[in-house]
Design a protein around this nucleic acid. Structure first.
Length: 283
DNA sequence: ACCAGCTCCTGCTTGC
DNA sequence: TGCAAGCAGGAGCTGG
């Protein structure tokens, strides 16, 4: 489900509850998500204070006072909800867990955070904070598109020589971090670049346009609280609304929104995933 | 080394 | 209305 803007939205939603708070009780309702949870997962979380809640690519990282970091990935259908401290909810009874409520954090403050994931493509792990960057999950992850190192030279460098289609290259987390199917389609449309282009052969001016488009699309999506197609919700249960701003995604047959372009949005399939684009102005 | 395709899982949408 | 097939935002793995 969630791409960078959705994960960032979740991070911002969880931060007030997580950061500086102590986990009074962690509960795992099953031994595995996509992968087995690490040994003694709940025990290693219980009693720990969260020093920081960060995001890297599509991962949420909660740095604990134990020297470990709780690494969380939402997969396709993972979501968090924060309970407690809402108006009229001082004493929420600890009822039966809802369907697909897999992990739960109760804080000393009384707030409770529940991780729900129907498809269970998400996963969690506990990794020594100091070793995070060397960990296989993170060692090969590419440039952060909203970070200080993302500029035309950096993008050109990671695309150099790639003979794969631009669409596939931008989905590759080792080249650039955090983009998924939706925002790749949207960014390519904004940059007027064809998803079918060979990735390693962009002109400098095109690379610059692509960098700007990626940053603009991601920032606008975060501003809107992400996109809610099926699963994504903010942690307070409200919906993101960037889906109303899609120019191409899931809009086959619609008019291309670019000025002076009368093209229609087409759908095709690249490496098994839907691509939406305007064949008239995306070159 | 690089790349396309398959796969994990559940639930919603689509078409008969 | 009911049912089954098809499809979904991720990404690790396999095999070419």
């Amino acid at each position: 489900m969630p791409e960078l803007p959705e994960v960032e939205t979740v991070r911002r939603g969880l931060a007030p509850t997580f950061v500086g708070a102590r986990i009074a009780l962690a509960t795992a309702r099953r031994p595995d998500l996509r992968f087995p949870l690490p040994a003694r997962f709940a025990e290693r979380l219980t009693g720990r204070r969260v020093n920081e809640l960060r995001r890297r690519a599509k991962y949420l990282l909660a740095d604990l006072d134990s020297g470990e970091t709780l690494v969380m990935h939402l997969g396709m259908s993972g979501s968090f909800r924060v309970e407690g401290f809402a108006v009229g909810e001082f004493h929420h009874p600890r009822g039966k867990p809802g369907l697909h409520d897999h992990v739960e954090f109760e804080f000393e403050s009384g707030a409770r955070v529940v991780y729900n994931d129907p498809r269970r493509f998400g996963f969690m792990d506990l990794i020594e904070t100091a070793a995070l960057e060397r960990h296989p999950l993170f060692a090969a992850i590419g440039v952060e598109p909203l970070g200080p190192d993302f500029h035309a030279h950096a993008l050109a460098a990671v695309l150099a020589g790639a003979r794969t289609p631009l669409k596939a290259a931008l989905l590759d987390q080792r080249r650039i971090a955090g983009l998924g199917n939706i925002y790749v389609c949207e960014a390519l449309h904004r940059a007027r670049l064809s998803p079918l282009r060979e990735a390693g052969w962009l002109k400098p001016v095109e690379t610059r346009r692509l960098v700007r488009a990626i940053v603009e699309v991601l920032e606008a999506a975060i501003e809107a609280g992400g996109s809610t197609l099926r699963d994504h919700r903010r942690t307070d249960g409200t919906l993101g609304y960037f889906q109303h701003s899609f120019a191409v995604y899931d809009r086959e047959g619609a008019l291309c929104g670019h000025a002076r372009c009368a093209g229609l949005i087409a759908r095709t399939v690249q490496s098994g995933r839907s691509t939406f684009y305007c064949a008239t102005c995306q070159r």
